[in-house]
């Protein structure tokens, strides 16, 4: 068993994303275009799972998220999907929390709550 295989695969997927290789959707978040792989989005987000799992998701290659998250909250989540690391600061946590709620990423929502709670403790 190659115990670091899953993180190596994820690292390669992230490299593909950064180079725009096989990215099959452009997300318009706060007007900012972000390229990604539908397969990674669907694997990480209940919201994207419900959108892309059906046939309706097949032809979608540009997706705007009206009334959705702002880029400042969404970009850290996209990085998290491809790296397993969620970068939070007291300034960004509320926007990341809102975006994670919108994307139905419950485990991340709970982590954001824990972070915000901890940042209020003396």
């Amino acid at each position: 068993e190659f115990t670091r295989h899953s993180s190596d695969v994820l690292g390669n997927l992230n490299e593909l994303r950064l180079r725009g290789i096989l990215t099959d959707v452009t997300l318009l978040v706060g007007g900012q275009p972000l390229r990604a792989h539908k397969a990674v989005l669907i694997a990480c987000s209940g919201f994207f799972y419900s959108i892309f799992r059906g046939r309706a998701g097949v032809g979608v290659d540009v997706l705007s998220l009206p009334g959705g998250p702002e880029a400042g909250g969404f970009a850290p989540l996209l990085d998290f999907m491809y790296t397993s690391r969620l970068r939070l600061s007291p300034a960004t946590a509320p926007a990341v929390l809102a975006a994670a709620t919108y994307l139905q990423m419950d485990h991340v929502v709970q982590a954001c709550h824990r972070f915000i709670q901890a940042s209020y403790e003396p």
Binding site: S45, Y49, H107, V108
Partner: peptide, 22 residues
Amino acid sequence: HEGLVATVKEAGRSIHEIPREE
């Protein structure tokens, strides 16, 4: 100055589980 960067390790589930095909 740059704020403190602390890393919290989360061992639990990170993302939803796609239901297995019945």
